[in-house]
Amino acid sequence: MEYGGYNDSFYIVRDGILRAFRSPSDKDLTLWFAFAGDMVVDMFCYFEKKKSLIGIEAETDVSVFAISKTKLEQVCNSSVSVANTVRHIFERHAFVFEGNILSLWDCDSGMERYLSLLKRHPELLQNVPLKKLASYLSVTPQSLSRIRANLKM
């Protein structure tokens, strides 16, 4: 595992939950979550060869399948079917990522966004602190607490 500001490896989550975040000043903004079977790549490093602009943190104990970009390119050069599969994974990943954002934007309220997330990934609620969920849903932790309290009533 390479630590540092640059990581162009290709990962597929085997087990657990990863979270991408950004920490401008004292904030902690959640960009996405990744679950078993999901691809994880730091896009700035992978495509632009630039230092990472995000951190990726394990919210649970996590295991991943990891393959360096160099090795991935070697494998893709030697197998058309693997190359097509990797291309398809990237395409599908972009589609799903956009869908996740739209599913949040289409909700008019924090309550709807919370319920939408609850429906898609109920495991987040047991494994991720309220503050991080709130930043993903673009609500304050206090608002999310109120939403959860209202749902329990």
């Binding site: 595992m1 500001g5 602009l53 996590v62």
Partner: peptide
């Protein structure tokens, strides 16, 4: 075939896969 070319890495809870420049 893709996974056969990958290695399995374990990341403990709250550890980082990618550290940002701020970190």
């Amino acid at each position: 075939e893709l996974l056969n070319n990958a290695e399995i890495i374990h990341i403990p809870k709250h550890s980082y896969l990618v550290w940002s420049m701020v970190d």
